[in-house]
Lab assay of single mutants.
Amino acid sequence: PDLGLTQLFADPNLIENLKKNPKTSEMMKDPQLVAKLIGYKQNPQAIGQDLFTDPRLMTIMATLMGVDL
Rank of each mutant, 00 (worst) to 15 (best):
T63D: 03
Q42K: 13
P31M: 07
L18M: 03
L37K: 00
L5W: 14
L8R: 07
D11L: 02
F52W: 12
T24L: 10
D50H: 05
D2T: 15
E26R: 06
E16I: 07
A46L: 14
M61A: 11
Q42S: 14
L37R: 00
T53L: 11
P22M: 04
P44Y: 04
D68L: 02
Q45D: 13
Q42D: 15
D68H: 05
K29L: 10
F9A: 03
I60E: 00
L37W: 00
L69I: 15
K20Q: 12
D2V: 15
L5G: 05
N17I: 14
A62L: 15
A62K: 11
Y40H: 04
S25M: 11
P22F: 05
L5M: 12
L69T: 13
I47N: 05
N43E: 05
A46I: 08
L57P: 00
P44Q: 06
V67N: 12
P55H: 12
P55W: 10
N13R: 08
N13V: 04
P22L: 05
M61F: 11
L33F: 11
D68I: 02
L69V: 13
L57D: 00
K29Y: 04
N43P: 02
Q7P: 06
L57R: 00
M65S: 09
M58G: 07
P44N: 05
G66C: 08
P12D: 10
M61I: 15
T6P: 09
M28I: 05
D50G: 05
N21K: 03
R56C: 04
Q49Y: 12
T53A: 11
P44K: 04
V34A: 04
Q7E: 13
N17Q: 09
A35E: 14
L33N: 01
Q42F: 07
P22H: 07
Q42A: 12
K23L: 13
Q45P: 05
L3P: 11
E16P: 05
Q49V: 14
M61T: 04
L14V: 09
K19H: 07
K20L: 10
D30Y: 01
L18A: 02
A62D: 09
L33D: 00
L57I: 11
D11N: 07
M28K: 00
P22A: 09
K36P: 00
N13C: 08
L14I: 10
G39Y: 15
M27K: 01
N21Y: 07
S25V: 07
R56M: 07
S25H: 11
N17S: 11
G66Q: 09
P12I: 07
T59A: 10
G48Y: 15
I60K: 00
V67E: 14
Q45W: 07
T59R: 07
E16G: 05
T63R: 03
F9S: 02
P1S: 13
G66T: 08
R56W: 07
P12F: 04
N21T: 03
K23C: 08
Q32S: 13
L3N: 12
Q45S: 15
L69A: 13
